[in-house]
Amino acid sequence: MRLLLNIIWLIFGGLWLALGYFVAGILCCILIITIPFGIASFRVGVYALWPFGKTVVDKPTAGVASLIGNVIWFIIAGLWLAIAHVVTAVAMAITIIGIPLAVANIKMVPISLMPLGKDIVDAPTLM
């Protein structure tokens, strides 16, 4: 089921979303001081490509620098990305097939708001 949802996600928005995160990551890597933002953007971009079967966890080594970086990220890009995810989720939730995609979009809001100090891992399978 995860594979099917990931393929549908990729076709109906995941590819464009990931490309946006990758372009933002490239732009952030131009200056040395913004490289951590670029790395976080690449990490979220990979998550945006294939979100089903993944989950976001806190890094145990995250400290005050991550908090300060997240505040800067929130002001510059995070709020706008979160709004875009919510608007896209509302549009996807119009159809029955789009409801799981809308849920995945809402699931991406916290990491779009504060990507530093987070890690994306495989979700545990329930069998």
Rank of each mutant, 00 (worst) to 15 (best):
2 R>F: 13
122 D>G: 05
100 P>Y: 01
7 I>A: 15
126 L>C: 10
89 A>K: 01
84 A>H: 08
62 A>D: 06
79 L>N: 13
84 A>N: 10
43 R>S: 12
32 I>W: 02
27 L>Y: 11
71 V>S: 09
64 V>Y: 10
37 F>Y: 11
4 L>M: 13
39 I>V: 12
1 M>L: 11
108 M>H: 01
126 L>K: 13
10 L>A: 12
82 A>E: 12
118 K>P: 01
83 I>H: 10
9 W>T: 00
91 A>C: 14
51 P>R: 01
34 T>A: 12
89 A>I: 00
82 A>V: 12
108 M>N: 05
109 V>K: 04
71 V>T: 07
97 I>G: 04
89 A>W: 01
76 I>P: 07
120 I>V: 13
24 A>P: 00
18 A>S: 15
73 W>E: 07
37 F>N: 14
76 I>G: 11
5 L>Q: 11
90 V>L: 13
31 L>E: 11
105 N>S: 15
19 L>N: 10
84 A>S: 15
96 I>P: 04
55 T>F: 09
78 G>L: 04
89 A>N: 03
110 P>E: 10
13 G>N: 06
68 I>Q: 05
125 T>Q: 15
124 P>K: 09
36 P>R: 03
123 A>V: 05
63 G>W: 08
101 L>I: 03
115 P>G: 11
18 A>T: 04
85 H>C: 13
87 V>S: 06
41 S>Q: 06
97 I>F: 08
76 I>M: 14
97 I>C: 05
28 C>A: 15
96 I>G: 08
3 L>W: 14
50 W>N: 06
52 F>I: 03
114 M>K: 00
118 K>V: 02
44 V>Y: 00
118 K>W: 00
123 A>C: 10
54 K>C: 05
95 T>L: 07
82 A>S: 15
11 I>V: 13
6 N>C: 00
120 I>M: 00
65 A>G: 13
6 N>H: 10
126 L>I: 14
109 V>A: 05
61 T>V: 12
56 V>C: 04
87 V>D: 02
85 H>E: 09
13 G>C: 01
27 L>G: 14
117 G>K: 00
125 T>S: 13
42 F>A: 10
51 P>C: 06
86 V>D: 04
68 I>D: 07
88 T>N: 15
40 A>K: 05
41 S>F: 02
53 G>E: 09
14 G>M: 04
46 V>G: 14
29 C>V: 10
4 L>S: 08
116 L>F: 03
88 T>V: 02
20 G>N: 07
62 A>W: 03
100 P>R: 03
78 G>R: 09
71 V>P: 00
31 L>M: 14
90 V>D: 08
119 D>G: 03
83 I>P: 06
30 I>C: 05
124 P>M: 11
25 G>W: 08
6 N>K: 02
59 K>P: 07
38 G>F: 02
118 K>T: 01
38 G>Y: 06
73 W>M: 06
90 V>M: 07
115 P>R: 08
2 R>H: 12
53 G>R: 09
32 I>T: 02
122 D>Q: 11
85 H>G: 10
45 G>S: 08
21 Y>E: 08
98 G>H: 00
80 W>A: 15
30 I>Y: 01
13 G>S: 06
